[in-house]
Computed example of a mutant assay.
Amino acid sequence: MLLRPLLDLLFPPLCHSCKTFIPNAGDLLICPACLENITFLVTPLCPSCGTPFKTEDGRNHVCGACLKHPPAHLSRSATLYAGPVQELIHRFKYGYKVHLSDPLGILMAQALQPFREEVAPELVIPVPLHRKRLRQRGFNQSQLIGEVLAKRWQLRMDVGSLRRERWTEPQTSLDAEERKNNVKGAFVLGKPERLRGRRLMLVDDVCTTGSTLRACAEALEEAGAQAVFAVTVARSLPF
């Protein structure tokens, strides 16, 4: 009973975002004030791609983009790519703060638990990096987040079956059509028999246009996956 107060004194639990002390902190380590500044994506949204609608009330309905080009998978994002989440992801990926995979993965696991129960995946598949990008960065952010998610959801994770075979330019400076063309045919399956007939959950950090997730899902479905779903920590909206 006395160990917890002693540990808090020696190693005070601080918010990952604003660094303030959090009394009675849980595993997430994001303070209530910062949590209030995180926009969680909830109904109404597109049940296909997960894009939220501007209206605060209403039912879920398929968006115009998915009606025109139905995706090969269902997607959900936990939060809007803004505020504390955007700052944490930026520090994680570009500031090499790999410990931030824990709060980001926990945040996603908690927020998207209903989706996980709805689609019942069997395996977690992190979106792979090209070997050149992996050497440059030193880690795959999707894999680190996926490890946290898989542990929280009590699922196995497959690393290596889905590969990024072709080098692609960073997506951040490209428009929607350029992003789609940039990743077309970039992903291949090294051992498709591992995933054939399975229900797969793709994991990435941020969804912008969904082009990368779509390319991964198409490769997985061509390899014989029974169903493909996708989750990301955050979603960047075009409006």
Rank of each mutant, 00 (worst) to 15 (best):
E165P: 00
A72Y: 02
Y81N: 08
T55M: 03
D57I: 14
F92R: 00
P12N: 00
L9V: 11
R179L: 12
R4F: 00
F53L: 01
R194V: 04
T39W: 01
P32V: 13
L112D: 10
K19I: 00
I106W: 05
W167C: 00
I145V: 15
P170V: 03
L107C: 01
L129H: 09
N182L: 07
L112H: 10
G50P: 12
L149M: 09
S161Y: 05
K54P: 05
A225Q: 01
W167H: 15
A223E: 02
Q141Y: 00
L41K: 05
L149A: 11
L41I: 15
L123G: 06
K191H: 13
T168E: 14
N182W: 11
L14C: 07
C46I: 03
C207M: 15
M1R: 08
E147G: 05
V188R: 13
R76I: 13
R179P: 12
T43R: 15
P103T: 00
E165N: 07
C34N: 12
K54D: 13
R179V: 08
S142W: 04
F239V: 09
E117V: 15
V127G: 01
G146I: 05
D8E: 13
R4M: 08
V98P: 01
C216L: 01
A217H: 07
L237F: 13
E165R: 14
L134G: 03
Q143N: 08
L29K: 12
M1D: 03
E56T: 13
S101V: 04
M201A: 11
L45A: 15
L213M: 14
N140E: 06
F187W: 05
E221W: 03
L123I: 15
A219G: 02
P103D: 07
V119A: 06
D8H: 12
Y96R: 13
S48I: 11
P170Q: 08
G224Q: 03
P238N: 13
H90L: 12
G190L: 07
Y81P: 08
R137K: 06
L2H: 11
V127C: 09
R137M: 03
E122M: 03
L3I: 14
F229N: 00
R131M: 02
D8S: 11
D175N: 15
S142R: 01
V183W: 08
G185H: 13
K132P: 00
S236F: 02
G95R: 02
T232F: 10
E218V: 14
G224C: 07
A176N: 03
P47A: 06
H90E: 05
V206S: 08
S77K: 09
L6V: 07
V233W: 00
V183F: 04
L88C: 02
Q143S: 09
E118F: 12
L144Y: 02
Q86N: 12
V233L: 05
S142V: 06
L195S: 04
L2D: 12
L100H: 09
Q141G: 01
V188F: 10
G64K: 06
T232W: 07
N181R: 15
L104S: 10
V127P: 02
I38S: 01
K151G: 11
F40G: 10
K191I: 02
R163L: 10
R166E: 05
R137A: 00
V183Y: 02
E222M: 10
P13N: 07
V159P: 01
M1E: 03
R163H: 09
R166M: 11
R76Y: 10
